[in-house]
Amino acid sequence: MYRHKTKIFVFFIILGLTVFLYTYINKPEKDTRDIETEVSLTTNEIIAYIDNADNDYLKSYINKAIEVEGTVKELTFKNNIHSILLSSDNKERLVLCQMQQGETSKMENIKEGELVKIKGIYKGSLLDAILLNCIFIQ
């Protein structure tokens, strides 16, 4: 009887560990809605930080959620992914916001030239600042 109970106990321990490991390994990326915003900036402020080589300030927000306010320059749909390109006073530099799945329906109401506020995960900058998993705030 005792050995039988031990076997059942070990079985449940192994089952629990397997479920935990499977969930841990296959954990999807977090929804941006569930991540706390670290800082709120305008596109001009972001581009100014990049241009002035004051990139260390922005680097501290890499992989963190930031809010960006700016004017829509272009809406793109490439490789099944919607993005919004926000303009700044510097014509050569933009803020690229790759939208999170589920934001597609809201994209239909957005027009070029419109002022929008977007929250996304800041990934760094090349010529432009890059944000992924973006959602609309306003």
């Binding site: 890499i62 993005s83 990934k123 760094g124």
Partner: peptide, 25 residues
């Protein structure tokens, strides 16, 4: 989906920059 690249039509020169943290898994 955020790779940066430019080409010169005159010379055929090509440059690419890829931000490693922008890969999506």
């Amino acid at each position: 989906n955020q790779g940066l690249s430019s080409i010169s039509l005159e010379t055929g020169d090509i440059a690419v920059r890829i931000l490693m943290k922008a890969f999506v898994f």
